[in-house]
Every structure is written in C-alpha cells, then in structure tokens.
Design a protein around this nucleic acid. Structure first.
Length: 465
RNA sequence: GGCCUGAUGGCGGAGUGGUGACGCACCGGACUGCAAAUCCGUGAACCCGGGUUCGAUUCCCGGUCAGGCCUCCA
C-alpha cells in the first residue's frame, strides 16, 4: 500500500509520489518566536514529526529534507523587544531556545533545517526583485505589493475566487493597493524597528514572502510537501503559492502536496492567544512527561479538531503505562525477527497518517506480546520488534520501562522507596499484614504504587498531580 | 453575508454500502492476605427528515447543532 496523503489543493487523498525519491522535501510553517508557544502550536510539530519519521522510514534517513522555519521578524517581536528595551535577537533567541526545548521534550526530531527570516534577507529581497521585474508585484509609497491580478489561479488553494473575497472583505483597504486582495511583500519600518536596506527603501519583509524565500533557498522549488495549520490556508499559503508560481515556476508547481492539521480546541473553541484560552506546552511539560502530551496530541486524526482536556491526558498516561508495563514484563526478551517493519504494521500510518488506528495497533501488538511472554510461546521476540519499530516511527516507547515508571524520582527518593518496599516484602513473608499495609500506606503517601509479583514487588510513581 | 469542516456508546476516538476498531469509565469473574498490575467476560452508540439501493451509520438532498476561515493566527 502506497503512502496516501490528503492534499488540500486536490481536496482528496492522493498517492504520495516524491519528485525525487532520493531527496524528499517537506516544509512546515513554524513559530513566530515572541513568546512561549501554546500546546495547539505544537500539534503540527508533532504531526509533521510523525510524517518526517515515516518518510525517513520509507525513503531512508538521508533522503528526507525537512525544513521548519522560524519567523523572527514580526510586529509582535518588535513590541516585546521594545517593552523589555532589548534588541529583537534577545527575544527571538530566548523563545526559539524554549520552543526547541519543548519540541524535543515532545519527542520531535530536529528538522534537517530551521531557517530564520533574518538569515534569509538576501533571498527575500532577490525574490521580491524578480516579482517586481516580471510584473507580478509593484512598488507604492515605500511598500511593495503582490499584484493578485497577475495570477489567474489566485484563490485556488483556499477555494476563494477573488471577486468573492472582495465582497467579504472586512478590512479597510490601504489606499496604495491596486486591488483590495493585493498583499505586502515589503513595507517600511516604523522608527525604532529593525530595518533592512532594499531597492524600494529601508524596511522589512511581509510574512508570506519570508516563507517562499526560505523554501526556495533551503529546499528549492517545487517542494514535495508543504504543511501547516488549517488556518494558514488563507491567506498565508495562498499567497506563498502565488508568489512561488509567479517567481518563474509557471510550468512547475510550488508544492505538490498541501497538508493542513486541524485545530486543538479548548472546550468548543480553538485555542488561541487572542482568545486567551491557552495552555502553554512549557507549563504542561513541568507536570507531565512529554510523551504523554505527544500521545494526547496524536490521539485524534490530524485533520480532525482535537479537544484538549485533563481527561485526554489521563487516558494518554494510562495508555503509555500499559505499553511500558508490557515492555517491562518483556524486558528479558531480545527484540528480533524479520528486522524490517512489516508492511501491515505501517498500514494505518500509510493511510493519511491515521495515528489513532496506529495507536490501536500498538495496543494490539502489546497485548499479543504480553500473552506471548506469559505463554513463552516463542512469538515474543518478533512481536517486541514490531511493537518497538512501529512505536519508533510514531516517536513513542523510546525510554526504558523502569525509567518511565520511576523517572519522576531522584536517587534519594528511590533509595527510600526501595527500603520501604523491601521492608514490606519482609512483612509479607512474615504474614504481618497490618505492618505490610502500613508500609504500603506510607508508600502511597509518597505517591508510589506497589505491585506485588511473582518475582517480588515492583513500584512506580503514580500520576503527577 | 460568503466559503469550508464536522455530528459514532457515559467519555475520547477509528472505520465501513450488508451484523460498528481501540482506549478510558462501569459491571461480573479469575488471580491476590487485601490491593495494584494482568487475564477472561457482559452491557452500551452511528444528529433529524427525505431519496437512491435488495440493504445506508456509510452515497445524495434538505434541516438542526457545533466549529473554522474571510484580519495576526498552528
């Protein structure tokens, strides 16, 4: 079964065929680094990380070029820098570091490239120059604007014909625009704001052109996959597409597959900074393992909306506890077998990244593995292999089971817990049940759960509050 | 106002033109000193109304409800 991906442009699932299997290219719109990102911002990070891992599995690690940009020129960054009285680089470096740290904690691999707008300025200015030259853009009052009239397919990606957009326009149209839908490629900086020299006067780039230029510089056009949140379809991706095509790619394309993830909701509404209903990944990671949050983020198909609830996190935690529990019981089994991940195990992911179905398969493999270990049936080794391989493609089960269950405890606490557990074991051997129960109560007070087994008691840190 | 999604058990959430995964919760049983973990098992759902069909949760039309985009936004 070939990989199928839902392409927003085609509004259908399509077989994925890269232009060059030796160099598969993917670009995903990343954060504007002016603050901590909320958990909804990390949904695409995790979703496209799974796709990145899957592509690496299919085409080889060296064959996949994945660029996720960083927008480090922006009004909000300027405002934050002004507020703190520091250069914008202080702000952007700080929050980029936090972003990358949080992404890593969520199990996301570092993309192969992380281009920054400030480091792409020459390419941005070159690209604008070419667009002006060939009549796709025009300069007016210190601005450069993209001429939407020059691109007959404008609106095709988002399904918005140009004339309809005018009817629905709710924004006042700047007087220097030739057409209401025309958008800014270059604009003058206000006093005190960062500024770059350009043939159209000092200023800074518009948001859309940054991405187009970064793609062109980092990956080359056209790319195989362009991803991002559903809200970016219009205007951001529509505009990127228009620029890219008009920049000498009329006969090719800009991106061959457009992928968009659905929103993460808080209750019934999307999580967004403007609505103020956000949960920061940075905060969540202080009280939950990143893997739990990752599991919760992948618990719904990426194109569906996902409600963010405590319940979802609890369920994620329970699921992972179960899987790690199985791995713990199978710790003496050497994973082995065919070596390659069986095609059938990959099938859910091949079907447009059906992560919920893949997670159900993980559980089935785990249940089978558990039974094989219990019956000592000889099937355990290949099952463990399959389980770990599929989990690996999804970015799960990378820890040692013992670390998973005891990871929240420091060495002192571990020693203390071990002492109590051993004392309780001794009491149980002596059939001193009141003493055993008293010790268990003491462990419970330490947020520790004991599990008696044939080979002695094991323990784990219970869910953190 | 325009455009676009979605509606599946108590909850989360896949999937399908012909008896609806999986997880959580619940219930019964096994195991346990009691638990936990594990295992076995029960119960429980396809928004409403039309249409197409031998048959629709699945396709089509209409409605209701919810959400998104049209402005920065993952």
């Amino acid at each position: 079964m070939p990989l199928q991906l839902y392409d927003t442009m085609a509004r259908a699932k399509r077989d994925f065929v890269p232009a060059d299997p030796k160099r598969v290219t993917m670009y995903v719109c990343g954060p504007t680094v002016y603050n901590y990102s909320h958990i909804g911002n990390f949904r695409p990070v995790v979703v496209f990380d799974v796709l990145f891992r899957l592509l690496r599995q299919l085409y080889g690690e060296a064959a996949v070029c994945y660029a996720a940009n960083v927008t480090d020129v922006d009004d909000k960054i300027n405002a934050k820098a002004a507020e703190e009285g520091v250069p914008i680089s202080v702000i952007t470096d700080r929050y980029l570091a936090a972003y990358n740290g949080d992404a890593a904690a969520l199990g996301a691999l570092m993309p192969t490239a992380q281009p920054r707008a400030t480091e792409t300025m020459d390419a941005i200015i070159d690209m604008i120059g070419r667009l002006v030259e060939n009549g796709s853009a025009y300069a007016a009052e210190g601005h450069v604007l993209f001429n939407t009239q020059a691109f007959s397919d404008y609106g095709k990606l988002s399904g918005r014909p140009l004339d309809e957009m005018i009817a629905g326009a709710r924004v006042e149209v700047a007087p220097y625009k030739q057409h209401p839908a025309d958008f800014v490629l270059w604009k003058p900086s206000k006093p005190g704001e960062p500024v770059w020299e350009s043939p159209w006067g000092p200023g800074r780039p518009g948001w859309h052109i940054e991405c187009s230029a970064m793609i062109e510089q980092e990956l080359g056009l056209p790319i195989d996959i362009h991803g991002g949140g559903i809200d970016l379809v219009f205007p951001h991706h529509e505009n990127e597409l228009a620029q890219g095509i008009c920049d000498g790619h009329q006969h090719g394309s800009y991106a061959n597959y457009w992928l968009h993830n659905g929103f993460l909701n808080m209750g019934d509404e999307k999580m967004s900074k403007s609505l103020g209903n956000v949960a920061l990944a940075h905060d969540l990671l202080k009280i939950q393992p990143g893997e739990v949050i990752r599991w919760a983020l992948l618990g719904a198909h990426y194109r569906q909306p996902l409600s963010w609830t405590d319940e979802a996190l609890t369920q994620a935690r329970n699921s992972l506890d179960h899987l790690y529990g199985v791995l713990g019981r199978a710790r003496h089994i050497e994973a082995g077998g065919s070596g390659a991940l069986a095609e059938e195990q990959l099938e859910p992911l091949m079907d447009d990244l059906n992560t919920p179905a893949a997670m159900a398969l993980l559980k089935k493999l785990a249940t089978d593995l558990d039974a094989a270990v219990r019956k000592d049936s000889g099937q355990a080794a290949p099952l463990k292999q399959d389980l770990l391989a599929l989990a690996g493609v999804m970015g799960f089960l990378g820890q040692d089971p013992q670390t998973w269950f005891q990871g929240g405890a420091d060495e002192n606490l571990k020693a203390r817990i071990d002492g109590l557990v051993h004392a309780r074991d001794a009491a149980r051997v002596a059939k001193d049940w009141p003493e055993a129960d008293r010790l268990r109560a003491e462990l419970t007070a330490l947020n520790v759960e004991v599990m008696d087994g044939p080979a002695g008691a094991t323990w784990r840190i219970k869910e953190q509050a």
